[in-house]
Design a protein around this nucleic acid. Structure first.
Lengths: 246, 246
DNA sequence: AAGTGGTCTAGACCACGAA
DNA sequence: TCGTGGTCTAGACCACTTA
């Protein structure tokens, strides 16, 4: 059969996904309620079962719903949760949950990296990196300090775009063709120092989640991040799914 | 069309997945090589495209292959990409680094749970839980406080085994037939209070990684855990593989 | 028993990468 | 251009949950 006309640049399942996500975050389906059954969603969106199921799969992956055979598809408490199963930036994640996330301020410069960061990025000592520093606000309150280090030869002139960057990963993909496809996080905890406390507007000694991330494109490290997140306002969420013994 | 005879207890895609995984780990497809194209896999296994793709999707999820449109499905270095959907357990990670991990002391009693824990376990207010408390040592120094809560009716008499428990999950499986098949972690940060500081032998106000876990067997919650880990001495590690952006 | 999600098929067209 | 994976359809039967 095929879809014939109108191309594929925006898959239909993505539209269905977006539509359902909007209905959930807009409160049309409350937490604990069931989504309409799949046959009804087929009719509603005028798509096939496959497409409906693909959209629902994405909703599951992003922590909006829980599916149970014989029962239905239930909306779960999706706020402040993040799945660690894939490479997602904090801002992308929070925005997906319907929380208003925006950088308060952003600062970009080109510096010589510390030994440790140079090593993580596989750089020679003299190679420079772009350093992007941001303060992330969630619903208007400071949530995190975010620093990204990228080999400068990969993103020449990035400092000129200081006002155009919303999601860094997306920007790297669209502007420089760097498509991050895997990553590695190391998560620990620390207490805020004076500088962090000032910036995040919390008392010195507040608990912070501290996350070090290295991102890869085509098996090569392209970006390393340092995130300091206010520990009481944010929960990382990890699902260890059935594993089916498969 | 449907599959008619032979039932569904073991999905066909799982068999295809197993077969391909075995061929990969047996070295029939080396790292860097391409798997046969999907149409060929259809013929080889005598299944439809959908089924082939579902199997490949699982291989991607488990870090065995990487798929690229227009190119093919490439075997990746799967030996370094395990633990994709799971946070590595504390003892496992530390032992990998050559650190000696063992419980210092263990204490088991039967108590009435807090409302929150009762809710997580789906218990009525009057139902009791077994509470297992442990202190984990790493190279002889306290590293974490670990508390597990299990509905008592699932593990009657567990307090008698106080000296026999090494790995709790293993013990539950072998002694009570409770087989944990999925779990859910929420990770945040907090600072140590007086009690935690005493037990862990650190100053009050030390940063702790705080992890709340709910474990499920057959879709039912069977155990909820609270872990407080010294933040500066431990890192959670999470590997991720990318996915298609929506 | 009815209705939900889970699996599967056969066939089609689209978008991307490499030759 | 050709072949790869990506998306989509329409229809079927199976397995589970609930009433």
């Amino acid at each position: 059969m095929g879809r014939g006309i109108e191309g594929m640049r925006n898959p239909v399942y993505a539209k269905v996904y977006e539509a359902l996500k909007k209905e959930i975050t807009d409160g049309e389906y409350m937490i604990g309620q069931l989504l309409p059954p799949e046959p009804e969603l087929e009719k509603k969106f005028e798509v096939s079962r496959t497409t409906v199921r693909k959209a629902v799969e994405l909703l599951v992956r992003d922590g909006f719903v829980k599916v149970r055979q014989g029962r239905g598809t239930e909306v779960v408490d999706y706020r402040t949760k993040q799945n660690l199963n894939a490479v997602t930036s904090i801002s992308e994640t929070l925005r997906k949950k319907g929380i208003d996330v925006r950088p308060k301020s952003i600062y970009i410069d080109v510096v010589t990296p510390s030994n440790h960061i140079a090593q993580e990025l596989g750089l020679k000592p003299e190679e420079k990196v772009a350093r992007i520093q941001r303060i992330q606000l969630a619903d208007g309150r400071p949530l995190a300090i975010m620093k990204n280090y990228i080999p400068y030869h990969l993103v020449p002139g990035i400092e000129r775009y200081v006002n155009d960057i919303v999601s860094l990963y997306k920007f790297m993909r669209e502007q420089y063709g760097i498509c991050i496809d895997s990553g590695h996080d190391r998560i620990s905890a620390k207490v805020s120092n004076f500088y962090e406390s000032e910036v995040l507007q919390v008392p010195v000694g507040t608990a912070l989640l501290y996350m070090k991330r290295v991102c890869y494109a085509e098996e090569k490290p392209v970006c390393t991040d340092r995130l300091s997140i206010i520990g009481e306002r944010y929960e990382l969420e990890v699902n260890m799914i059935g594993r089916n013994e498969v």
